[in-house]
Simulated assay, not measured.
Amino acid sequence: MTKKIYWAAVIYTILGLLGGLYYRELTKAKNFTGETQLAILHTHLLALGTLVFLIVLVLEKVFALSETKSFKPFFWSYHAGMVITVGGMAVHGTLTVLGKESGGAIAGIAGLGHIILTVAFVLLFAGLYARISDKQPVKAA
C-alpha cells in the first residue's frame, strides 16, 4: 500500500501542476482577468492531494494505517471526493472564463465532492485513532 500512497501523491502533484498551467493558458488565451475557480484548482490539488498523501505516507510508515479496517474506504472515497470536487471546480471555472453560466448543478456536484472528502477524513481519523489507542496494534516487523 505504501507505493499506492506514494503514486497518489505523485499523480496529484502532476494534476496540480497541469491545473495551474490550464488556468494560466486559458485565461491568457481568452484575455480573462476576472475571478474564476480555476485560480484555486491547482492549490486544491496540491494541498488536498499531494500534501495529504505525503502525510498519509508518513503515517503509514509509522502506524501501518493500511492495516486498519477504515483505510481502504478512506483511500478510495478520498479519491472519489477529490475527482468530484476538482472536476466541478474545473467545469465551473472554465465556464466562467468562457463567459457562460454554470448553474446550481455544478455547485451541487462540487458540494457533494466536499461531503465525500469529509467522510474520507473521518475514516482516516478513525483508523489513526485505532492505532494510537492500541485498539489495532501495529504488527511487529
Rank of each mutant, 00 (worst) to 15 (best):
Met1Thr: 10
Thr2Glu: 07
Thr2Cys: 02
Thr2Pro: 00
Lys3Asp: 13
Lys4Arg: 11
Ile5Asp: 00
Ile5Gly: 08
Ile5Ala: 02
Ile5Tyr: 02
Trp7Ser: 11
Trp7Gln: 14
Ala8Asp: 04
Ala8Ser: 15
Ala9Cys: 09
Val10Thr: 07
Val10Trp: 13
Tyr12Asn: 03
Thr13Trp: 00
Gly16Met: 10
Leu17Asp: 02
Leu17Pro: 03
Leu18Gly: 07
Gly19Leu: 10
Arg24Asn: 09
Arg24Thr: 13
Leu26Cys: 10
Thr27Arg: 02
Thr27Asn: 08
Lys28Gln: 12
Ala29Phe: 06
Phe32Met: 12
Gly34Leu: 08
Gly34Tyr: 15
Gly34Ala: 15
Glu35His: 12
Thr36Phe: 06
Thr36Gly: 08
Leu38Asp: 06
His42Thr: 13
His42Cys: 08
Leu46Cys: 11
Ala47Pro: 09
Leu48Ser: 06
Thr50Gln: 03
Val52Gly: 01
Val52Ser: 12
Ile55Cys: 12
Val56Leu: 04
Val56Ala: 07
Leu57Phe: 15
Val58Pro: 11
Val58Glu: 09
Leu59His: 04
Leu59Gly: 09
Lys61Ile: 01
Lys61Ala: 04
Val62Phe: 14
Ser66Ala: 09
Glu67Thr: 15
Thr68Lys: 07
Lys69Thr: 07
Lys72Phe: 03
Ser77Cys: 05
His79Met: 13
Met82Gly: 13
Met82Asn: 00
Val86Asp: 01
Met89Arg: 13
Ala90Ile: 07
Gly93Ser: 10
Gly93Arg: 01
Thr94Ser: 11
Thr94Arg: 03
Leu95Glu: 06
Thr96His: 05
Val97Gln: 05
Lys100Glu: 15
Lys100Asp: 04
Glu101Met: 14
Ser102Gln: 11
Gly103Phe: 03
Ala107Glu: 09
Ala107His: 07
Gly108Trp: 02
Gly108Cys: 01
Gly108Phe: 05
Gly108His: 03
Gly108Thr: 11
Gly108Tyr: 05
His114Asn: 07
His114Gln: 12
Leu117Tyr: 00
Leu117Glu: 02
Leu117Asp: 00
Val119Lys: 00
Val119Tyr: 02
Phe121Asp: 00
Val122Thr: 04
Phe125Asp: 10
Ala126Asn: 11
Ala126Tyr: 13
Leu128Trp: 00
Ile132Leu: 15
Asp134Met: 12
Pro137His: 13
Ala140Asn: 09
Ala141Asp: 06
Ala141Lys: 14
